[in-house]
């Protein structure tokens, strides 16, 4: 009998059979893990409330033949309580989970930085002190950096010519100088690029001064970058509620 223990954040739950669920977690040491939680849909289940999305938990797994089985769970942080009470936070947090799920493609491959990023983003969303939309964009930019897809914001993405440059090309991977600029590039204002840089390195004082228009444009660019690199649409991103609290 092989047991192992890890801490993780619940990314998604899927129904299995009559009362079971498949729980996808991003864990500290074992990367993404998909495991069966038995009987959790029954109202008398002792595990049920602990393995809901957004929960940060300490879990014991039993190694199964195809999927591992969750045997014990203890809550570390119940982020869900702070998140589901506000629809904007909920939709932003769902986009965080879906991105983390897509970025950790291989099960069992350690993704410690992404795990820490997810925990940080959910904590910030549950606290509710910052604009959920900014928290989401900051998470997405840092997740892009984790995957090696960090956009060039202060120099040309193609020739490295120091900027700032006006043109921004998703395909080229960030801002581009007039010589390298491919056709169909966007031309965001300087404020948008400053906001994106501030979100990527966590300079919140700068990020929170940004205007609504800059926030909207930055969100659009970040979403486009992410979906270009992931080569697929995220289902939760179009449903994210972007309004200023």
């Amino acid at each position: 009998m092989s047991l192992y223990r890890d801490t993780g954040v619940v990314l998604r739950v899927q129904k299995l059979g009559e009362a079971d669920r498949i729980i996808t977690l991003i864990t500290r040491n074992h990367g993404k893990v998909r495991a069966v939680a038995k009987g959790v849909r029954r109202t008398t289940s002792r595990l049920g409330a602990r393995v809901e999305p957004f929960a940060h938990v300490d879990v014991q797994f039993y190694t199964g033949r195809t999927l591992d089985v969750i045997t014990q769970v203890q809550t570390i942080d119940a982020f869900g309580a702070g998140i589901v009470g506000d629809y904007q936070r909920y939709t932003s947090a769902c986009a965080v989970l879906e991105t983390a799920d897509r970025m950790s493609a291989e099960e069992g491959e350690p993704v410690l930085r992404l795990y820490l990023l997810v925990g940080g983003a959910l904590r910030a969303l549950a606290d509710g002190t910052r604009d959920p939309s900014l928290v989401l964009d900051a998470f997405l930019l840092r997740a892009l950096a984790f995957a090696g897809w960090s956009p060039a914001l202060s120099e040309c993405a193609r020739c490295g010519d120091p900027g700032p440059h006006r043109a921004f090309s998703i395909q080229a991977g960030g801002s581009v100088c007039p010589r390298c600029k491919p056709p169909g590039s966007a031309s965001p204002t300087h404020e948008v690029l400053t906001l994106m840089a501030a979100l990527a390195d966590g300079t919140w004082a700068v990020a929170e001064r940004a205007t609504d228009a800059a926030r909207r444009e930055a969100s659009g660019l970040v979403a486009a970058l992410l979906q270009w690199h992931l080569e697929r649409q995220l289902r939760s991103l179009p449903l994210v509620e972007r309004r200023r609290p």
Binding site: R12, R235, S236, P238, L239
Partner: peptide, 9 residues
């Protein structure tokens, strides 16, 4: 139920 992860808004 509202479930953005499954595209339900």
């Amino acid at each position: 139920a509202l479930d953005p992860l499954s595209g339900i808004g």
